[in-house]
């Protein structure tokens, strides 16, 4: 087929593909069928107002909490990914530190309803207005725009799984110690992804994916907004934010 790289067999690629899908399935909550059933279960007007009345600090704590839960699932996804645990510990940490938030943003498209521009948050679907008290309308709007653009691609669960793996296994992250090893794993993932797309007649998808810079920009925007929040609420962060969130972003 011309797809196989000279260093890995078709069987290896097949196993890698199965592994990516299994890792994704085992670490993605809620399941796709459940998300589909609940996609019209939106917050009532009163519930939205109650969220809007919450103090900025409480809303930041809530969002940091939900984001941290999602990141913990991404860590589990990485651990189950064939080859990830064979990388040195420095590189495992580098890849997760740089990529976990990006993977969360990609995964978010699963829990996003593009028809009414809402996302699953604390049990129901919420529009941008629910997050008003965070004080970062532009960031929230950009994240929703990103989810909307991914939803327009009508990604299958398998495609989301591969996209997440490819976002995570990025040999261009600074401070990697074994860059070549990461690049080899990334290469095998790309071969497996292309094979899936060829089988499903979706080769055109690669050209329509958002550029990597868009995810990077969203992550930088998040850190900038966090810094702005900390300037407004000095001392808030150590007290109530999840330790993993502080470790990754503060």
């Amino acid at each position: 087929s011309g797809l196989e790289s000279p260093t890995c067999s078709g069987m290896e690629i097949e196993l890698l593909a199965q592994d990516v899908l299994r890792s994704h399935r085992e670490t993605s909550q809620p399941r796709a069928e459940e998300l589909q059933q609940r996609r019209w279960d939106t917050f009532s007007r009163e519930e939205v107002c109650a969220y809007q009345r919450k103090p900025m600090q409480e809303m930041w704590e809530r969002c940091a909490g939900r984001l941290t839960e999602a990141i913990q699932h991404v860590v589990e996804f990485a651990k189950r990914l064939r080859g990830f645990m064979e990388l040195c510990q420095n590189d495992q940490i580098v890849l997760l530190k740089a990529g976990a938030m990006e993977v969360v943003l990609v995964r978010m498209c699963r829990a996003f309803n593009p028809d009414n521009r809402t996302v699953l948050f604390e049990g129901k679907y919420a529009g941008t207005e629910l997050f008003r008290s965070l004080g970062c309308h532009e960031l929230v709007g950009s994240i929703f725009d990103f989810a909307q653009s991914l939803c327009a691609l009508r990604l299958s669960e398998s495609e989301v799984a591969f996209l997440c793996a490819i976002v995570l296994i990025n040999a261009n992250r600074p401070w990697l110690q074994e860059q070549a090893k990461v690049a080899r794993l990334r290469g095998r993932l790309e071969v497996a992804f292309r094979l899936l797309l060829r089988r499903t007649h979706r080769e055109g998808l690669l050209a329509r994916l958002p550029p990597a810079g868009r995810l990077r920009a969203l992550c930088s925007q998040h850190v900038e907004q966090l810094q702005a929040f900390r300037r407004l609420h000095p001392g808030a962060l150590p007290a109530a934010f999840p330790p993993l969130y502080r470790e990754l972003f503060a």
Partner: peptide, 17 residues
């Protein structure tokens, strides 16, 4: 790096699933 990211390091260590 492991020192600065103890929680992440611990999560990675917990059960090589």
């Amino acid at each position: 790096l492991q020192e600065k990211h103890r929680i992440l390091h611990k999560l990675l260590q917990n059960g090589n699933s």
